[in-house]
Design a protein around this nucleic acid. Sequence first.
DNA 1: CAACAAGCGAAACATATGTTTCACAAGTTG
DNA 2: CAACTTGTGAAACATATGTTTCGCTTGTTG
Lengths: 291, 291
Amino acid sequence: MAEHDTIRDKIASQYAELSDRLKVAADYVAEHPLDVATRSLRSLSAASGVSPATFSRLARALGFSSYEEMRELSRRAVGNRALSFSERAGLLRAEARAGGGPVSMLERQAAACIRNIAELEHNTDRRRLTQAVDLLHAARNVVLFGAFSSTGVVEYMAYLANYIAPNWTLAGRMGASLGAALADLGAEDALLVVTKTPYARRAVVACEMARSDGAQVILITDSHACPAIPHANVHFLVPTESPQFFSSYAATVVLIETIIAMLVARSEADPSERIRQVEQRNRGLGEFWPG
Amino acid sequence: MAEHDTIRDKIASQYAELSDRLKVAADYVAEHPLDVATRSLRSLSAASGVSPATFSRLARALGFSSYEEMRELSRRAVGNRALSFSERAGLLRAEARAGGGPVSMLERQAAACIRNIAELEHNTDRRRLTQAVDLLHAARNVVLFGAFSSTGVVEYMAYLANYIAPNWTLAGRMGASLGAALADLGAEDALLVVTKTPYARRAVVACEMARSDGAQVILITDSHACPAIPHANVHFLVPTESPQFFSSYAATVVLIETIIAMLVARSEADPSERIRQVEQRNRGLGEFWPG
DNA sequence: CAACAAGCGAAACATATGTTTCACAAGTTG
DNA sequence: CAACTTGTGAAACATATGTTTCGCTTGTTG
């Protein structure tokens, strides 16, 4: 970690060492690189409520020899961004032409994911989304299930849901019986399944069983060929295109986050209260780093 | 053309009226808006070979009441360009149009995630990415850890990794001892931690312990304020902006997928063989729906 | 050629800027 | 409690900045 190319990096690497006031100043610098590059120190001071001296000291604390040197780095930060339109396109082409190879993996993956998300946004039927949220909102109990690669995102969804609804359960967790969770499902309940190619047998069967028990089934999958679709009340097809051997879950995460967000908006109870409570308790247990 | 929004417009509309010397100055201003916004008048003078007085006069000649006013317009020019790379995603416009109209939650969330991914792509240092992949590739054992909201994505990463490397372990799984996993860490091993605000104490401590045992620590987090950064060999700051109460993991997923993809590219063994084997076995166990 | 106007840079000017000093407050140590 | 350390903002400081003045040059007009 000898090299630091951006102010943010420099700030990040020294942040822990800074005093309280310097941290406030550092936060401001990190969040307003354009203003740092552009306005005077005293303007920043006025805008941020931190004294000029503190900014001056911050520069030293970060290892710069003067405030001007820190500003120079900020200049570069906004300068790079300013390049992005025309010049960056040129650079990209040059880079691609250079050896066919070295267009960075990150670039490829990011581009693919952005396309997927844009496609998701474009293709998803809003009424169906509303319908799914209605079902989840009305359900007595909601059971979540995902296997193999989908385990992680479903767990993420369950985590988010716990902040707003106590009646959500993650099924098939740590080898626990999926059957047990399904057995309790009735007409007033909902099952939400995420499954991608190749489709887990258990995911398909879970949908089938839940549906035959009269429960509401919501399915998130990657293709119209998914065998669980016939058993779902509502299903979503999420683009998963990726340059890699595995398919990308980025768009799926977006969909999941959107569903949770819509649930929050729907629920009459203020979620921030429950969030506060949960976090308060975690804090009390010493689970969180004191910030 | 009563209104002129950009310096270029303003210059274009007055250019014919300008004297020779003022034209030179105007040319320079038009071609270097970033420098105008960023450097001092005298620096410009030195760089362009035009006297300070001329720039000052130019501002008046263009209808500004002072040089500072002209600079303000330049500021805005580079500020807009800084935004424009996310505009390439296109969705921003939809969001902007939303002067209060019913823009769907999906639209908002998708736009935010695309911005985050674009920012990640732009801000991430490629060398650092390579460095992280090198560490993971060279490690004898790799331990993954994530708590609370990060549990899911880390699990996802572990799942992907199992296709290409048998020496990756998910720590703290199902209540199993995190300490046990850390105890085995030595200088030849690596720990990869994902943690977001509020930071799990265990995540921070895990980094600290691993580092003091000489292990390589790779950290994925959301802010320079993360207390684990000082204990990491390599860290990544992932944008998590979101219109919701919770932060988005979409960009984090992209980063994780990219790291895995780079590992695949690095490994000499053909991953498809192992993938085929794993899937074959799962198929044999009847885990997959026959497709 | 003289008279004049226009444009320019050097330098003088008032002012804003970044830095440093200083005194004070809060916390720690002996 | 005293001595000391640390962190802070107000203010003093030297300096850099943008503007204006002034004299010079160049080109035009009568």
